[in-house]
C-alpha cells in the first residue's frame, strides 16, 4: 500500500479523534490525566490507610475488578480480624435450602453465620397487623471523608453531619422486611429513594437514597445495610425484622471496607 499525503493526514486525524475520546471517556489511566503509577507498588501497600489514600489519585481507575477485590480483601484482613464465616449446618437447620454442588441457595446466597437469621423469601412472608418497634438510621458520613470523589452536582445533598434519617424508633408490622420498613419510612419523611428489583437474588437493590446513588462517590460506592451490627449476605427484601432490631443504612465509598461490611459481599 502506498502512503499518500492524504492517507497520512487521515490516519493522524483518526488517531487524534480516538485519543480525545479515550481521554474524555474517562478510561485514561488516572481519570483525565496521564498519571500512571505502578500497579504492584500500590497493591503491596498492606497498611490500609496508605492504600486508601493512594486511591484518590487514580488507583481505582487502573485496576481490574478482581484486583480491586483482592486489595479490598487484603484490607479486610487487616481491619477486621474476624470475618464471620457462614455455617452450612446451622443454616440448613434453620430452614435454608442449600444446593450441595454450589454450596449456595436458590438465589445464590451463601450460608449465614451461626446465630444469624436465614433469609425469608418476601413471597412467603406472612405480614400481620401486629405493630412492633425497631430502630432505623440512614447515614452517609463516609462521603464526608471522600468528598473530593463525590459527583460535584451532588455535594449539596450531603448533610453536614452525614445523617439523612436520624436514629429513631419506628413501627413496623410483624413479618415485614427491612425493605418494607425503609420504603415506608422514606415515603413518610419525603426522602427520595430509588430501588430496582433483581429477580436473580429475589430481592430489591437500593440504588439511591436522598438522590445519592451508587457510584456517585467513586466506582466502589453504594448503599449497604446492617441489622444489629451485622451486614447480612442477602438482600434487604429477604431480611425479616424482629422486635427491637437496629437497622442501619450506610453509604460506603470503598466496597464496604470503610463501614466494616466487606464480608457481606461474599468474599469467598
Amino acid at each position: 500500500m502506498k502512503w499518500s499525503k492524504n492517507k497520512i493526514i487521515v490516519s493522524i486525524l483518526s488517531a487524534a479523534i480516538l485519543a480525545i475520546t479515550f481521554w474524555w471517556g474517562g478510561n485514561a489511566p488516572g481519570l483525565q490525566g496521564w498519571d500512571i503509577s505502578s500497579k504492584t507498588e500500590e497493591a503491596n501497600n498492606s497498611i490500609p490507610d496508605e492504600a486508601l489514600e493512594s486511591r484518590s489519585d487514580g488507583l481505582d481507575r487502573e485496576l481490574t475488578a478482581q484486583e480491586k477485590i483482592d486489595i479490598a480483601k487484603e484490607l479486610v484482613g487487616v481491619t477486621l480480624h474476624e470475618v464471620e464465616k457462614g455455617d452450612a449446618n446451622y443454616s440448613i437447620a434453620q430452614g435454608m435450602k442449600i444446593d450441595e454442588n454450589t454450596g449456595k441457595d436458590k438465589y445464590l446466597t451463601d450460608p449465614v453465620p451461626e446465630g444469624k437469621p436465614v433469609p425469608i423469601e418476601p413471597q412467603n412472608a406472612v405480614i400481620t397487623d401486629k405493630e412492633l418497634i425497631c430502630t432505623l438510621l440512614v447515614r452517609c458520613d463516609t462521603i464526608l471523608d471522600n468528598i473530593e470523589w463525590l459527583d460535584p452536582e451532588k455535594v449539596e445533598l450531603v448533610p453536614e453531619d452525614g445523617v439523612i434519617f436520624p436514629r429513631q424508633d419506628v413501627t413496623f408490622f410483624d413479618g415485614e422486611s427491612v425493605f418494607n420498613l425503609l420504603l415506608r419510612e422514606m415515603k413518610k419523611n419525603k426522602i427520595h429513594m430509588e430501588f430496582v428489583n433483581t429477580p436473580i437474588y429475589n430481592s430489591v437493590y437500593i440504588e439511591g437514597i436522598n438522590n445519592l446513588y451508587e457510584f456517585d462517590c467513586g466506582e466502589l460506592s453504594g448503599w449497604m445495610y446492617k441489622v444489629n451490627g451485622w451486614f447480612p449476605n442477602y438482600g434487604c427484601s429477604r431480611y425479616q425484622l424482629k422486635e427491637g432490631d437496629v437497622v442501619e443504612w450506610v453509604y460506603t465509598c470503598n466496597l464496604g471496607v470503610d463501614v466494616g461490611g466487606y464480608s457481606a459481599l461474599g468474599g469467598d
Partner: peptide, 18 residues
C-alpha cells in the same frame, strides 16, 4: 428513571415519580 429532588407522587411499585 426515578432520580430527582422533587417527588410528585409514587408509582405503583413504590418508586417515586419526580
Amino acid at each position: 428513571n426515578h432520580e430527582g429532588a422533587t417527588i410528585l407522587t409514587y408509582l405503583g411499585n413504590g418508586n417515586p415519580l419526580t
